[in-house]
């Protein structure tokens, strides 16, 4: 047990270093972005003097290293800074801008995960169990096609079926802070189904492949020769040894639910972080862009860390050393 905490601590420290490095990359790429906030707000006709004055007010005239140090120093204290889009008397911090949007994103991700992860695992195990049967073939073909279609296409198809033809679900998912939970659930269902279709396919195929890879192990043959049924072999003997790759692909897909769903948000007009970031890039609202990017990076790193820890915790060689 001591060993495992040591490993977790080590990974955690490594994650912090990674986030720090990523912050440099984020800051430099945002700085290198052509155009700036002052010009895009003030318009083409602004005089150089007004632009310079505005830049001074926002602190954009100072050298990048100085600006980076100030930014990262405040981030370390939990302060993501103020949005450029705020003015006098209309002060909004980045946290205030991102907060509600992140809440929406996490809500959508959670609904999707609750539908997708158990379904993917069950279907993957079943496909491995009944390998080469009509069930396996159907599951394979379906998952391959949902992976192959672009998500917006899947989204529009679902919208056509459930919103336009059957009129069961609303086609727009424009939730707000005051939307009650039940309405929020109904409105989130279509985007959640779209995302679920995409990630179920990934996770299912990985689950099936990880199990089948282990079916050739001598201990599987041994279990069969002990009279253990095929179902029990897969559930009890193979699955505990297959967790590492499966958990990894789950973590990868959960991260995608948070950082990669901008297209689906756009189709359903869902107010998530992805849409916010795209809008902020357009208006050159640099602090918000940086904040979003940092949150995305942290999500990736944290979920991968969690997957690593689970993989270690399910490996008896590490848990019970000689």
């Amino acid at each position: 047990m001591k060993l495992i905490f040591g490993v977790i601590f080590q990974r955690l420290a490594l994650s912090l270093v990674t986030i720090f490095l990523v912050s440099i990359v984020i800051f430099s790429s945002v700085t290198l972005l052509p155009g700036d906030f002052a010009k895009s707000i003030l318009g083409q006709s602004a005089t150089p003097e007004t632009v310079a004055a505005f830049q001074r007010e926002l602190g954009l005239d100072r050298p990048p290293v100085e600006r980076y140090l100030e930014w990262i120093g405040r981030v370390a204290q939990g302060d993501l800074g103020d949005s450029f889009a705020s003015g006098a008397g209309y002060q909004r911090s980045v946290a205030e801008v991102i907060g509600p949007r992140l809440g929406n994103t996490l809500f959508l991700a959670a609904i999707t995960a609750v539908i997708a992860v158990p379904l993917a695992l069950a279907l993957g195990v079943a496909a491995a169990l009944y390998r080469n049967s009509w069930f396996d073939r159907t599951v394979n073909a379906t998952s391959l096609s949902t992976i192959s279609f672009p998500e917006f296409f899947v989204a529009y198809i679902l919208m056509l079926i459930f919103a336009v033809n059957l009129r069961l679900l609303p086609s727009l998912a424009n939730v707000g802070p005051e939307t009650p939970l039940d309405e929020r659930l109904v409105k989130t269902l279509l985007p959640a189904m779209t995302l679920a279709l995409v990630i179920i396919a990934h996770m299912l195929r990985m689950t099936r492949a990880s199990i089948i890879a282990l079916l050739a192990s001598p201990y599987v043959e041994m279990a069969r020769l002990k009279g253990v049924s095929r179902r029990r072999v897969i559930l009890k003997h193979v699955l505990p040894n297959a967790w590492a790759p499966i958990v990894n692909i789950i973590a990868f897909n959960l991260a995608y639910l948070i950082v990669g769903v901008v297209v689906v948000e756009a189709v359903f007009v869902y107010p998530g972080v992805g849409q916010l970031m795209v809008d902020s890039v357009q208006t050159r609202d640099i602090p918000v862009v940086q904040g979003c990017a940092l949150i995305f990076a942290a999500t990736y790193i944290f979920l991968n860390l969690a997957a690593d820890v689970i993989a270690i915790a399910t490996n008896p060689r590490i848990l019970h050393p000689r």
């Binding site: 001598p218 041994m222 279990a223 002990k226 009279g227 003997h237 040894n241 060689r317």
Partner: peptide, 27 residues
Amino acid sequence: ERQLDRMRGNRVSYVAQSAAAAFNPAW
């Protein structure tokens, strides 16, 4: 298959060449 499962391990059993590989590492 079911009838064979009932007999295997019970009335006929097997000892494999590499015990290190034939035991489940997770059990």
